[in-house]
Simulated scan of single mutants.
Amino acid sequence: MVFSNLPQQQRELPEDGTTNLWGVSRLSEVHRVPVASLRPADSPRHQSEQAEHTHLLANSAQELPPIVVHRQSMQVVDGMHRVRAAELRGQSEIRARFFDGAPEDAFALAVRANTSHGLPLSLSERTAAAVRILTTHPHWSNRAIAAVAGLSAKTVAAQRRKLGPATQTTARIGRDGRVRPANSAEGRRLAGRLILESPGASLRAIAQKAGISPGTVRDVRARLLRGEDIVPLRHRLDENGRGGLNENRQSGERRPPVARLVAAPPPAPGRDEGGVSGIFPSLCRDPSLRLTENGRRLLRMLELHTLDGQGWQSVAQSVPAHRAQIVSELALECARQWQRFASQVRERAVAPVA
Rank of each mutant, 00 (worst) to 15 (best):
A324V: 01
A342I: 04
V315R: 13
Q317S: 05
Q310S: 13
V315E: 05
S328G: 10
E329A: 09
A321E: 06
R340W: 05
L307D: 03
A335H: 11
S318L: 09
C334T: 06
V327Q: 05
Q339E: 14
G309Y: 02
E333V: 01
R323S: 13
C334P: 01
R336N: 12
E333N: 06
S328F: 09
V315P: 00
V319N: 01
W338N: 11
R336E: 13
I326F: 00
Q310K: 12
R323V: 04
R340L: 15
A321W: 03
Q339F: 00
W312N: 04
Q317L: 09
R340A: 15
Q310Y: 07
A331I: 08
S328L: 13
C334Y: 11
C334I: 04
I326S: 06
A324G: 05
D308T: 04
G311D: 01
G311Q: 07
Q317R: 10
Q337T: 11
Q339N: 13
V315C: 03
Q339S: 14
Q337I: 12
G311F: 10
L332H: 01
V319R: 03
C334S: 14
E329M: 03
Q325L: 14
P320V: 13
V327G: 00
A342R: 08
R336D: 12
S314T: 15
P320N: 02
S318V: 07
S318H: 08
L332F: 06
G309L: 06
A316V: 12
E329L: 10
A316N: 04
W312A: 03
R340V: 14
H322W: 07
S314P: 00
S318M: 09
R340F: 09
W312D: 00
L332E: 05
C334R: 13
D308V: 05
A331W: 11
R323I: 02
Q339M: 04
A335I: 00
E329H: 07
L307K: 12
E329S: 04
R340P: 00
W338M: 15
Q313E: 07
L332Y: 03
S328T: 08
S314L: 06
G309I: 00
L330E: 14
Q325W: 06
R336K: 13
Q339Y: 02
A335P: 01
V315G: 00
L307N: 01
